[in-house]
Design a protein around this nucleic acid. Structure first.
Lengths: 216, 216
DNA sequence: TATACATTGTGATATAAAGCACACACTGCT
DNA sequence: AGCAGTGTGTGCTTTATATCACAATGTATA
């Protein structure tokens, strides 16, 4: 790395591996815990032992973005947390829409874990006329045909898909059409999306199905 | 690979990479779809295009376990599905216990996706006396102190953790203590477990937090 | 039966990720 | 100020994963 102390735009010169990006939120989480436990400094050793990974890997990961530590001391907890949040874009609020207001969708909109982390579910949609028009958890359920409009109006950047599998691909197509680039998909399928659109799947069954291999 | 046509115990001679195991359920899922669409044969090319991965990777993955295809033709859909289910241990039913009967736990026990795949939630636990003794979705909620006993009695092999973060580690310790080797963890923390115990985390917030990097 | 074509299975190769090990920098003690 | 101790940042090495490319083996057709 040629220009060490500069945190910005290193990432655009050298693309950062996606696995690294996926680990950063883990670091943020531990740092938050440490911080609220009153600790001011943390070493890669301590971080690593919390997450069951090697200190070297943590230092390598962080080195993609700059030099945040002090030799002989470690990392300033508050400072590192702040830096990582900034890198990940967590220093702001993100608006999200949930599509599919069945059992799962209702559970998602009432899940209390999103808001404290800055993810605000601000619109709800469904394909079925039976549900459209109702109000669930304070959200007015709209028809999918209003998706594009609402996305623009409310500055929605994230789509959360909770429709049954047989509607999932079309809903995802609609989200893409509406300009959404980040999708959290609860439907048990691997959807097709154009390059530049990112989908993360939440699928407890898949997780179970690979664990059984080891206890068989 | 020395003894090709033999499906068994290859895996114990050469350990199969975990990434490979994690992909097998994806293959199973596509095969099920293909099968119910009336297709009898599938090529690695077709499978790959469904899952957005290269045909070569699929063939390599399968080759860890045997030779299932026919040159010039492809794979028999029904046969391959059956083989993969057997390899993963999905040719049977698995009993699971849910620990934590709050909002999330209730959503999990009433989620209709587990049963059709052979995962049967047959016991519910909670740490709070306020909930213990109640019946939720047909499950009698027990105290955590009865965990070990029930695990043995009901042949429970999987623990699903849906308690709040501040009780998660102790609940996981209790599961380990009770002899559970596979844990599905909905709590937002990276728990410590002894070697030989496998934990898969379900964490929508983590997924969102790494996606924001790309739309920042 | 011969010929054209399709698709597997796999050794060899390329790419990516993880881990090692040590110079260097900072702290804190005497 | 000097010295001992600690922990970072990183070039280099090792290990893991993915891809290539082609011989081998099958199908389909005439």
């Amino acid at each position: 790395m040629t220009t060490p102390n500069n945190t910005d735009n290193l990432s655009s010169e050298f693309p950062v591996p996606e696995v690294v990006i996926q680990r950063l939120p883990l670091y943020v989480r531990v740092l938050t815990q440490y911080s609220s436990a009153g600790e001011e400094v943390i070493s890669s050793e301590q971080l690593g032992s919390r997450l069951q990974m090697t200190p070297a890997q943590i230092r390598k990961d962080l080195s993609y973005f700059g030099r945040f530590g002090k030799q002989g001391r470690g990392y300033d907890v508050a400072m590192l947390e702040h830096q990582l949040r900034e890198i990940l874009g967590l220093d702001r609020t993100w608006n999200a829409a949930v599509i599919g207001m069945g059992r799962l969708g209702r559970a998602v909109v009432s899940y209390p874990g999103f808001a404290p982390e800055g993810f605000k579910i601000c619109a709800a949609f469904d394909t079925s006329n039976a549900i459209v028009g109702k109000t669930i958890s304070g959200l007015h359920v709209q028809s999918i045909s209003q998706l594009t409009e609402s996305v623009k109006e409310l500055d929605i950047k994230i789509g959360i898909v909770t429709v049954p599998i047989d509607h999932a691909q079309e809903v995802i197509d609609a989200l893409v059409e509406a300009g959404i680039k980040s999708i959290l998909n609860y439907a048990p399928l691997s959807p097709k999306v154009p390059e530049g659109v990112m989908v993360r799947g939440i699928d407890p069954v898949l997780s179970l199905q690979s664990m059984t291999y080891y206890i068989r």
